[in-house]
Amino acid sequence: MNVTVNKLTSNLKELSRRTESGEIAWLQASPTVFNWDQGNGLVASIQRAGGPTQRVYQGLVSKAALLAAGIEADDRDGGQYLFQVVEKASKNTVVSLSSKERPELKGVLERIFSTAQASVDVSASKVLDELLGF
């Protein structure tokens, strides 16, 4: 791997680490899409296509965006991942990383998706605890 790919991978691993530690709060837009509004006009999203859930849901990352990134909804190899950062005001995509186009990033993108999913589960458990008076 070259220096640029190493830095990119390192940054993505840090994003996953911060999600695991609770520093980053993801919201679930659909069963396969998680969004993180950074509060600075940028929204990051991680989406899984293929794998256990075959349908592609509309969110900040659309089916058209997946297709443009070369990800087909029927990928059956455990899924593909698309990480994007979008400017809220202009809706311009400023970062788009696809595990189909960049297979060397699949592991770290899958980890971001998994940690985002787990962080939403932790938040849901806290809300349920409150509802139940725990």
Rank of each mutant, 00 (worst) to 15 (best):
F34R: 08
G133V: 11
R18G: 03
R55I: 03
D121W: 12
A44T: 10
S10M: 01
A118F: 01
V5S: 14
V3S: 13
G51C: 02
L42H: 07
S99Y: 07
S21W: 04
V61I: 07
Q58S: 09
A73V: 13
K13D: 06
L8V: 04
K7T: 12
F113A: 11
A124F: 12
S119M: 09
R76F: 10
D74Q: 14
W36N: 09
T93P: 08
L12N: 10
L109N: 01
G133T: 13
T53S: 04
L15N: 08
A29W: 10
K7M: 08
L131R: 15
D121S: 15
L8D: 09
A124D: 13
V108G: 05
W26D: 00
R17I: 00
L128E: 14
T9Y: 11
G59W: 02
R55E: 06
P52Q: 10
L109C: 01
S62E: 01
F34N: 06
G50D: 04
V85T: 04
S30K: 03
K13V: 08
G70W: 04
V85H: 08
A25P: 10
V85G: 00
K13R: 14
L42T: 02
S21R: 11
Q117R: 15
E104M: 01
L27K: 14
G59C: 05
L66M: 11
L67R: 15
W26T: 03
L109K: 06
L128Q: 15
S30R: 06
V95F: 02
V108N: 08
F113M: 05
V108W: 04
D77V: 02
L131H: 15
L131E: 13
L82D: 02
L109W: 06
F83M: 05
S96N: 06
A89F: 09
K100S: 11
A64W: 12
S125K: 15
V85Q: 05
G41S: 01
R55Q: 10
Q84N: 03
D37K: 11
S125R: 15
Q80P: 02
G22L: 03
K88A: 01
T115A: 14
S119K: 12
E87S: 06
G39P: 00
N40H: 00
K126M: 11
T4G: 13
P31Y: 12
R102N: 08
V5L: 13
L109G: 08
K88P: 05
Q38F: 07
T115F: 13
S99I: 01
A65K: 14
N35K: 05
A44S: 12
V3A: 12
G79M: 07
L132W: 13
V3G: 13
G22C: 08
K126H: 12
V86K: 01
R76C: 11
L27N: 15
V3P: 14
T115K: 14
G59V: 09
L27D: 15
E101M: 05
E87T: 09
Q84W: 01
G70P: 02
R102F: 05
S90T: 03
L27C: 14
S90M: 00
R17E: 13
T4C: 11
M1I: 10
V94T: 08
S98P: 04
Q58P: 10
V61W: 02
G79N: 08
N11C: 11
L67E: 12
V108E: 00
G22N: 04
V85I: 07
S96C: 07
N92K: 09
K126A: 12
R102A: 06
F34M: 03
I46A: 00
V56Y: 00
I112W: 05
W36G: 03
I46V: 09
S45V: 01
S99R: 00
